[in-house]
Design a binder for these strands. Structure first.
Lengths: 189, 189
DNA sequence: GTGATTTCTTAACATTTGTTCAGTGTGATG
DNA sequence: CATCACACTGAACAAATGTTAAGAAATCAC
């Protein structure tokens, strides 16, 4: 989907506004394995995923990769906390497959928001939607067992489960790959 | 703090705008144990906590209360997901002590946002800040042990730990009261 | 103040999850 | 083809956490 189309679905845009938006987002192509952002940098851009798939992960105190999110087409991706606070990020965002992005810098978002004031509403809605996703995830991690979390993911995001290495899914669920392997076997019965 | 003051700290308000904001938020007083919202209802208001303390919890599949958040003075409280999606909430929000709120309805927020367009920016920033808090919490739940989570809370929110019943803290950390009691004893050594 | 109720602690035991390590399969590369 | 690296599985054991039940401590209602 085009980024202006996506925004238009949320806040109606006039044709010249659509063009203005399309010009503000620059095309970026990532090959499988390429990084959108690496830990230690300040993330000053946000991207709309046109096609492909990415993974957001960080390295915990024990040195393990912990997957925070998978990001698929028609959604926004960024190290948002770094982006919003201008502090170096702990997150890495990498392409799980060849991926096409439309990228906009913080500066350009601000300029676009002056040109098109209702972009403020759009930005608010995006932030609110991210919040809703986060809250769901917290409830899952806080009150469900690993087994329940896996079954829920199997039901709600089978396409991710099937397309990414098991170890990524494991850390996303907050468990070790060995334990996920065990849960899978139990579930086969 | 007055709610207009709080907002003013984030987006500068003119004196008449401050008054406009103060009028839009209605005073509400809760006694200890009173509910701001109960599960099953659609939450159509947001409150600024002037003084007091609240707890946000839901009942999980096993029938246990699970504490999602503690909310203290000078922050906003609501069943945000319900508020944003107009769906019945699973959350309960209750006063842990006598509490003074300034409450605004969804309708009034929209009207206020038309009168004072920069309220859109404020609303976005609030949503973004909630997102940042959520993300931190996810990382904690996903990659740290109960012991580490407790120590972190002890360091960062001792005032909450000391003022709420242990069982609330336990479910907030994602563990049983018995296990928290055990962790505490270990830490005393 | 007294009894009743709730909250907290403790301990034994059960379950879940992590750790270590060995093995198996698979795909890439020379 | 041989080999290497990597992802996944499996099993034995260890550590973390849950469950149950009982008693101690704190709080509440009268």
């Amino acid at each position: 989907m085009m980024v202006s189309e996506y925004i238009h679905q949320i806040i109606a845009l006039l044709q010249p506004e659509k063009e203005c938006v399309e010009n503000a987002f620059k095309k970026m192509e990532l090959s499988k394995g390429d990084f959108f952002i690496k830990q230690g940098k300040v993330c000053d851009q946000v991207a709309f995923v046109v096609s492909g798939k990415l993974r957001n992960f960080y390295i915990d105190d024990a040195g393990n990769e912990v997957t925070c999110f998978f990001v698929t087409a028609d959604s926004f991706v960024s190290a948002f906390t770094s982006f919003l606070t201008n502090t170096p990020t702990h997150e890495n965002i990498t392409a799980l497959e060849d991926t096409v992005l439309r990228v906009i810098s913080k500066k350009d978002i601000e300029e676009l928001s002056i040109l098109i004031p209702k972009m403020q509403i759009f930005r608010r809605i995006i932030a609110e939607n991210l919040f809703i996703i986060m809250e769901k995830r917290i409830m899952m991690l806080q009150s469900q067992s690993a087994h329940e979390r896996y079954e829920k993911m199997l039901k709600e995001n089978p396409e991710i489960l099937l397309s990414v290495p098991l170890q990524y899914t494991a850390s996303f669920l907050g468990i070790t790959p060995q334990h996920l392997s065990r849960l899978r076997k139990e579930l086969q019965k």
